[in-house]
């Protein structure tokens, strides 16, 4: 069974078609890179798959559940990390983990052991009781990823998780992504860093709301006769008529 299966998914805002008839599948345990210029429609597509935004038309199943009828069941099976940091800055690291653990229905002892594991893994032992507000960006992103994974979801959606993060933290972040994938979690990730795209099992490239190309990084490089995903991305993205929003 496919982890995510999307057919002809479309989202319109008035006369503007943000996501235009996209169709693709994501396999379980795969790291799927969702590339595209700013305003290409990546975030909108991702928000639809997470049950945050209602599609205008098309079909999709996420973790085997129907996007229209079983949105709440989907939410139990997915983790989501948005572009904008969205944990509570006026709560401590521990309190944020406890809150989301509680919302996902974990028992209090489970939350406690998870919190300890997580804090140790992130090397945040001495900061566990400080407000999230005081954490530097790189650590926030790693924390947000860990919180999105708190309930061991089948699929995790990451919207530009490494935007603005330094190269070392970026490398560490991707180590976390590989670990999650090796445990069987499907990773659906958007990024603007083309070196990161090379780490993905498969990538798709969105231009003006539609999917222009899809395949493994090797396949795509061969098909477009380019040396890197970056080169190929520029070829495709330059065709875009829509400007950055």
């Amino acid at each position: 069974m496919k982890s995510i299966s999307v057919q002809h998914l479309t989202k319109r805002f008035g006369s503007f078609v943000a996501v235009d008839n996209i169709t693709f599948d994501v396999n379980p345990g795969e790291i799927f890179g969702f590339l595209g210029a700013n305003g290409a429609g990546k975030t909108t597509a991702m928000r639809m798959l997470c049950g945050l935004s209602m599609p205008s038309s098309g079909e999709a199943t996420v973790a085997g559940f129907d996007l229209y009828k079983e949105a709440e069941k989907i939410k139990r099976s997915i983790g989501y990390m948005s572009q904008k940091f969205s944990l509570y800055e006026d709560l401590t690291i521990r309190e944020n983990i406890r809150l989301y653990g509680g919302i996902y229905g974990l028992s209090i002892p489970t939350i406690k052991t998870k919190t300890d594991q997580l804090v140790t893994a992130l090397k945040l032992e001495d900061k566990a009781n400080t407000l999230v507000r005081s954490l530097p960006l790189g650590w926030r992103q790693k924390l947000a990823f860990s919180v999105a994974m708190i309930h061991d979801p089948k699929i995790v959606f990451l919207d530009e998780p490494t935007g603005g993060v330094d190269p070392i933290t970026r490398r560490e972040f991707w180590t976390m992504i590989f670990e999650a994938a090796s445990r069987g979690t499907t990773v659906f990730v958007t990024t603007h860093y083309m070196d990161e795209a090379e780490y993905c099992n498969r990538v798709s490239i969105m231009v003006d709301g539609g999917i222009e190309a899809m395949g493994t990084p090797e396949e795509l490089k061969k098909k477009y006769t380019s040396n890197s995903i970056a080169e190929m991305f520029l070829q495709l993205a330059r065709k875009a008529k829509r400007s950055d929003d």
């Binding site: 997470c50 939410k75 969205s86 996902y104 229905g105």
Partner: peptide, 13 residues
Amino acid sequence: EKGTLEQINVTPI
């Protein structure tokens, strides 16, 4: 505004 509500909305709450 802060976006924290979105994070809550993506949970099965």
